[in-house]
């Protein structure tokens, strides 16, 4: 879910970059030389899972997993997502450097919201059902939040002229949300059983 470089206008880009800078400043306060290896590995995971595609008809959707990143890292999601997106911009021209602030904001803000609201539920041993529900809720917050933010950014750039594009974009996220919810729920379920301490990082 990248907004390509050159799509958003300057005021939207600046506002998004300002919000991202604020989120980054909080996230970087939690990044120490001790937490760096873990944060770097999670950024790498976020980068690599973006290449997992699930076929749908003639096309496919790729995993985003920003909700899961929020559950695992909390505020550290901002620097981690920023860095993963910067690498994607450099290596594949996904997004771009001036739209990096906007793309980071639309993925990291819902991730942090998912983390702040759902991480407390995972601080003690949980049943499998609870893990699955928390996972699905994290994905829902992650994808719906990102979709909403992207729609707001596109609307603030093009207004009514982009309304059809925005409707199409929102509709296209429905299968992504469904698949992402199931994948995140199952992943949280597996992690909760195999590594329950995984959800205490970045506390």
């Amino acid at each position: 879910m990248h907004i390509a470089e050159g799509v958003l206008d300057v005021s939207t880009l600046l506002a998004a970059a300002g919000c991202t800078a604020f989120g980054l400043s909080i996230g970087l306060r939690r990044l120490t030389p001790q937490t760096l290896p873990t944060a770097a590995l999670f950024a790498a995971v976020f980068f690599v899972v973006g290449t997992i595609h699930i076929p749908i008809g003639v096309g496919s959707v790729h995993l985003i997993l920003n909700g899961l990143i929020g559950l695992l890292l909390g505020w550290l999601a901002f620097p981690v997502i920023f860095v993963a997106l910067a690498l994607q911009a450099l290596l594949f021209s996904f997004g771009g450097f001036t739209s990096l602030g906007a793309n980071t904001l639309l993925m990291a803000l819902p991730a942090v919201i998912a983390g702040l609201s759902l991480r407390p539920l995972l601080q003690e041993p949980s049943s499998r059902t609870k893990l699955l529900i928390v996972g699905a809720a994290a994905a829902t917050i992650g994808i719906l939040g990102a979709t909403l933010l992207a729609a707001v950014m596109l609307w603030s750039t093009g207004g009514a002229a982009l309304s059809s594009l925005i409707k199409l974009f929102v509709a296209a996220q429905a299968p992504v949300w469904l698949i992402e919810s199931i994948v995140t729920a199952l992943t949280v379920g597996m992690l909760g059983r195999a590594r329950p301490t995984a959800f205490t990082l970045g506390n």
Binding site: V49, I52, L191, R195
Partner: peptide
């Protein structure tokens, strides 16, 4: 299977 792969990658990373 995709979820298993993601979980395995995260456990490997941890």
């Amino acid at each position: 299977v995709s979820a298993q792969m993601v979980a395995w990658l995260i456990i490997h990373a941890l």
